Computed example of a mutant assay.
Amino acid sequence: MESYCSFTLGALCQQGCAFSPNGISSRISFIFIFIFTVLLYQYYSASIVSILIMTPARFIKTLRDLAYSTLILGCEDVLYNRDYINKLVNDTVVNRLSKKSPYGTDASFYVEPEVGLPKVAAGGYAYHVELATAYPIISKTFDEDAICSLDEIQLFQLQQMHQPLQKGSEFREMLDYVLHRIDESGLMYRQLKHWHAKKPECIRSRPATSSVSIEEFYPALSMLLLGILFSVFVFIVEHIMHVHQMKQQEQMMIQDLRIDKKHGLITRVRH
């Protein structure tokens, strides 16, 4: 049984064993053990490679995720932002967002885009700003990796716009037709494209590389540490047993000498 256990452990550790099975059933079992260990090794290597080439997961997708994250938050200093946040002071999420500043004051929360966006590029900082203002600064100051790692979350909820007209006005049908016509012909998209800054595109000139961190490698280190601790424990136990056996042998030899002397016999033990 000890030989079988050592053989299985050697197969799992990609090592051999001096034990050679004689039975057909044992040989078949050992062949499948080796096949299993090869597949296990391949799956473990493939999992590490897949983690390295996989796109990092986005954990912050909503305002609640942002509010309860470790990111420091800033906001563009414009009047409607201050008014919106002050009116939603009872909202738990918005209230928590407004307090996520490094010093807990309005002076550090409301900053200009030229100050807030470089902090976003440095990392650990989220900044609420008008996209038309942010995109030109991002295109000029952000590097390729910073642009590709950006993410956007909508702070203001989109609301439907309405045309104020007098009840029963004859211009209602005319304005509906004109607005639909502008939208269908692409004039609205053209004006938006002309006046609104274009979103910076993520164009990687080289594939993103990432190194193996301790998170991917710690299972192997844990197994190695457990193996070292177990081997040290076995060594200590074997040493104690060896010392105990030597003492027992010495005591038995002393007793034998005493018995021989008692009977008047002197013997010499040859080693």
Rank of each mutant, 00 (worst) to 15 (best):
S101T: 04
Y103S: 05
G104C: 08
A107S: 06
S108Y: 04
F109S: 02
Y110V: 00
Y110K: 00
V111P: 03
P113M: 05
P113W: 05
E114I: 00
G116W: 00
L117K: 10
A121R: 01
A122W: 05
A122D: 04
G123I: 04
G124H: 03
A126Q: 06
A126I: 01
H128S: 10
L131C: 05
L131E: 09
T133N: 09
T133Y: 01
I138P: 02
K140F: 00
K140Q: 14
T141F: 01
F142V: 04
F142S: 00
D143T: 06
D143S: 04
D145A: 09
A146P: 02
I147E: 04
I147Q: 07
C148P: 05
C148I: 01
L150D: 00
D151N: 12
D151H: 10
E152K: 03
Q154D: 11
Q154S: 08
L155E: 06
Q157M: 11
Q157P: 12
L158H: 11
Q159V: 13
Q160W: 07
M161V: 08
L165H: 00
K167C: 09
G168E: 05
E170M: 10
F171K: 10
F171L: 14
E173D: 13
E173F: 07
E173R: 11
L175R: 02
L175P: 06
D176P: 09
L179C: 11
R181D: 13
I182C: 15
D183N: 14
E184A: 14
M188A: 15
Y189Q: 15
Y189V: 10
Y189W: 10
Y189I: 12
R190W: 14
Q191T: 10
Q191V: 09
L192I: 07
L192N: 15
L192K: 14
K193T: 10
A197C: 02
K198V: 12
I203K: 00
I203A: 02
R204C: 06
S205C: 11
S205L: 14
S205M: 09
S205R: 06
R206K: 13
S210I: 02
S210F: 01
S210A: 07
S211K: 11
S211Y: 06
Y218A: 05
L221T: 07
L224E: 12
L229S: 15
F233V: 10
F233K: 13
V234P: 00
F235H: 15
E238Y: 15
H242L: 14
